[in-house]
Computed example of a mutant assay.
Amino acid sequence: MTGGWQPLAGPAHRVALEILLDGPLSRAELSRRVGLSPGSLTRITKPMLESGLLVEVTAGPTDPRVGRPSQPLDIVPAAHHFVGIKLTGDDAVGVLTTLRAEVIATAELPLPDHSPAAVAATITELTKTLAAHRPDGELSGLGISLGGQVTGKNNVRHASFLDWTDVPLGELMSAHSDVPVVVANDLTALTAATHWFGAGRGADRFCLITIGAGVGYGLVVHDQIVDSPDSSLGLIGHHPLLSDGVRCERGHVGCASTLLTTQGITREIGDALGREVTYDECLDLAVEGEPAARRVIDRAGQALGHLIAAAANFTLPDRVVLGGEGVRLVEVAHDALQAGLRTDRHPESTDPPIVLLDPDFHEWARGAAVIAIQTFVLGS
């Protein structure tokens, strides 16, 4: 199935999007959601069925008197494939997904250096590797995400992990491939994936907090990502959490960037032990009861509790989603996190459910693929 998704307008667009996100859906349910009569819905979906954008799938009998099976409408997820690539300071991590962001292949390559040309060449090679998992090698879009400021879905205004300023990455990639390319901030991309196809589905409001190399925050309200030119600045990284914490490079005491980043945690525990340690080793040592590790990890957990409380108090989310490569902290410092959360919440308030994402970088790459899917589907 290779028919293109032509961005639609009005009720037809709403029908297609409802099915993409929540299908298969019965015609009755679709009529209710988009406010169309059965006749109008039939007129709208007929050309979509003829083009192959939609298909009828058989469900169980809906009328016990006649046993007539319903035929909900659905898309064909495997009709289109997308590559999503997450750039770190060291690697390009990629996934191949369907139209519903189902991951069907993963791959990664090291970055030989940080020059835009070298990074573009690495992305091109990785994209070809992933596209080879399709019988025809065709792709409908390529999404690239990275930590930094991105404008116009093309230009990387600033990316500290790559030492980039004003790099037109989208244009560079277009010179290497005829696949449509979109570039996004990695936190924005992960928020989009959580919203459309992940733990945020069905929530009127949710926030996403990520901990790892940095601390990130994304917010969805009334089915829309709250976005601005400042969203990719990592503003939450310098939110004050504890009055007795380490001082960061900007002079803040006890801010999120010193207490919750993997680098901040490994540096403090490594200094206490007199040797270098990895992040997972820090968590393992805390579980084993090593005093210095336990102290630092519990303090980080308490700080994360304060951060979750601040997000919950200000935005009243239906749920809080926690992700990033450092998210194992939530389990190891569970009691300290709960103590920090309760300290800053009203005693009669109901704490929002907390959902954990997979810490693997492929989750971020999937977010990049979702940005490409959204651009493909919405036409912008």
Rank of each mutant, 00 (worst) to 15 (best):
V181W: 05
R345P: 01
Q338V: 12
D163V: 03
T343W: 14
F314H: 11
F206P: 05
P116N: 04
T188M: 05
S174I: 11
R267Q: 13
A203C: 15
V296L: 00
L17D: 08
R32L: 12
D166Q: 11
A78V: 05
Q338A: 06
L356N: 04
E138W: 09
A131K: 04
T127W: 04
T261M: 05
E288M: 02
T106Q: 10
L99S: 01
R27N: 10
L307G: 08
L187W: 02
H362Y: 01
E138L: 15
R328Y: 04
S177G: 09
W5R: 07
R205L: 10
G254K: 13
I265E: 03
D178E: 06
G237V: 08
S51Q: 13
D178P: 12
G301H: 07
G216P: 02
V119K: 03
I373E: 01
R134T: 11
L17R: 13
F361C: 08
M1V: 06
S26N: 14
F376K: 07
L219T: 07
R294S: 14
Q224W: 09
T210D: 02
K128E: 15
P61N: 14
D136S: 11
S243R: 15
P112Y: 05
K46W: 02
H252M: 02
T124S: 10
D284F: 00
R299M: 14
G198C: 11
L304F: 01
I297S: 00
T106M: 06
A272Q: 07
R295Y: 02
L8W: 05
D335V: 11
A369I: 09
C207Y: 10
E281R: 00
L146Y: 08
V55A: 02
L142P: 08
